[in-house]
């Protein structure tokens, strides 16, 4: 196992958010974390790379306690893309190059520059390399954030609703890209999502959360009308379309 999450719990003084969350992640796995708003999906992701420190439980990265690792050490293993990306008055190239921070000494090396260029090419951002990020569209800014995460050369990608503000074309492009990175480089990806159909189309495994705990976890077989009805409190049917399951609300 690459990542072992065991009994993780987190809460604020006024209310608990996560309770006894346990699961494991293998290399080259694309996991979709699903559930209604406020269920603790983002909190879970932030606990995995110690942006938040869980009150109980442990997160082990190949038997190393993540909570005992330094910030640069964690950053060399895990990359995180937050829900909202701050558009900066920096060029795309510099903004992506920033992802090399955990590997940098005093200054950037030719290797840092070469990796940045390779990722820009891979994400079709090379043409925009010298454009300022704050002059770009939401989809392009999100791609820059993902490119920055990829130049970290992580083994685990944590993506917090990276497609929530994007149109369908950009959603498909970014999810396809994450799936390709997972397959080509053996990186594990955990992505919180709201669109069940896109999750079913791209992810390998699913974690459905309810009330701060895992309600169901597994392959496509766990994403049934019953589980969705229970987790989201919405009546749905799951049908087959183009070889993929499609969730249709009964309203």
């Amino acid at each position: 196992m690459m990542l072992e999450v065991d009994g993780v719990g987190f809460g604020y003084p006024s209310h608990p958010v996560l309770e006894e969350v346990s699961f494991s992640v293998r290399p080259a796995e694309f996991i979709a974390v699903l559930g209604p708003n406020g269920v603790g999906k983002t909190t879970l992701l932030r606990c995995l790379n110690a942006l938040l420190r869980p009150g109980v439980g442990s997160v082990l990265l190949e038997d190393r306690d993540v909570l005992a690792m330094s910030r640069p050490e964690i950053a060399r293993e895990m990359a995180y893309v937050s829900q909202r990306t701050q558009p900066m008055r920096m060029t795309v190239f510099d903004s992506v190059l920033l992802g090399r921070r955990p590997h940098m000494g005093f200054d950037v090396t030719s290797r840092d520059l070469a990796i940045t260029e390779a990722i820009l090419q891979r994400l079709d951002l090379a043409e925009l390399a010298l454009r300022y990020v704050d002059e770009m569209s939401g989809g392009e800014v999100q791609k820059v954030a993902i490119a920055r995460a990829l130049v970290q050369e992580p083994r685990i990608l944590l993506l917090d609703e990276p497609t929530s503000s994007l149109d369908l074309k950009n959603q498909l492009e970014i999810l396809g890209l994450v799936r390709d990175v997972v397959r080509e480089h053996g990186v594990a990806a955990l992505m919180t999502m709201h669109d069940l159909n896109l999750a079913l189309r791209f992810a390998d495994r699913f974690i459905l959360m309810k009330g701060g705990a895992i309600h169901a976890a597994g392959g496509r077989e766990v994403v049934t009308a019953e589980t969705i009805g229970c987790v989201y409190d919405v009546q749905v049917t799951v049908e087959q379309c183009c070889g993929f399951p499609v969730v249709v609300p009964c309203v």
Partner: peptide
């Protein structure tokens, strides 16, 4: 000047900075 990349990271937001290994 030694911390210039850390300030760049902070400009991208606290969560991004911390996930880039910046204290």
């Amino acid at each position: 000047q030694l911390n210039r990349w850390n300030y760049n990271a902070l400009d991208a937001g606290d969560d991004t900075a911390r996930s880039l290994g910046v204290h």
